[in-house]
């Protein structure tokens, strides 16, 4: 879901940095010093997990895990995703420095929406793990679609000629969203069985009351 270097125009680059700065400031306000190592360690695990490839047809795809990051980390997911995107640019030259702001928005907004949606809908499932996992899967699938829509939007804002390729990208992510939803469903269901406090109570202590079912 990365936007590569050289694709965006200056208003979009600047706008991306402005919005991502706002999201980062919001997330920093919610972080207490004791939570820093947790966010970073979980962020690193999500970063590495997203490198796992699945063969689909003649090609292979890798997951974004934005929805799952949002569900587990909550608002600080913005910081974990920003760190992950920074190191993807440094280690693999995916994305880049000029597009870091826009890419952060493309990943962080779906993660935050997934967190809000799961916080609202998750408790409705009570202690039925499968239903909770199904909600998490559905929310994650939608998060991928939101990310794809954001990519289409920033490409359209960067030039009319990029609309076609943006549309192709969105269609491809429609397929990815199904895969992401299925993987999130399996992952959340298994985690709820062996370490429910990781998801049912929320990662951050502050969210305990809100998301407990």
């Amino acid at each position: 879901m990365h936007i590569s270097e050289g694709v965006l125009n200056s208003p979009v680059i600047i706008g991306g940095y402005a919005v991502s700065a706002g999201l980062t400031a919001l997330a920093l306000k919610r972080v207490r010093p004791g939570e820093i190592p947790k966010i970073a360690v979980m962020g690193a695990a999500f970063f590495v997990s997203s490198l796992l490839h699945f063969k689909v047809g003649i090609t292979s795809v890798h997951l974004t895990l934005t929805g799952l990051v949002g569900i587990v980390l909550g608002t600080p997911a913005v910081l974990a995703l920003l760190a992950g995107l920074f190191f993807q640019a440094v280690m693999f030259q995916h994305g880049g420095l000029s597009t870091l702001g826009v890419n952060t928005v493309i990943f962080a907004v779906p993660a935050l929406l997934a967190y809000l949606a799961y916080s609202g809908l998750g408790p409705l499932a009570g202690k039925r793990h499968s239903l909770r996992a199904l909600i998490a899967g559905g929310v994650s699938a939608l998060a991928v679609l939101v990310g794809a829509a954001l990519v289409l939007l920033v490409l359209r804002l960067s030039g009319e000629e990029l609309t076609g390729i943006g549309f192709l990208f969105s269609v491809a992510h429609g397929v990815l969203s199904l895969l992401e939803g299925a993987v999130t469903f399996i992952v959340v269901r298994q985690i709820l069985k062996v370490k429910p406090e990781m998801i049912t109570a929320g990662f951050m202590p502050r969210r305990q009351g809100r998301s407990r079912g």
């Binding site: 292979s60 985690i191 990781m198």
Partner: peptide
């Protein structure tokens, strides 16, 4: 890996192991 989606459960299990360990 070449069998892709047929091993989605195994791949997800690997993710679960990694995430639980990291947590």
């Amino acid at each position: 890996l070449q069998r892709g989606l047929r091993h989605i459960g195994t791949s997800s299990g690997i993710l679960v192991t990694l995430l639980l360990r990291s947590y």
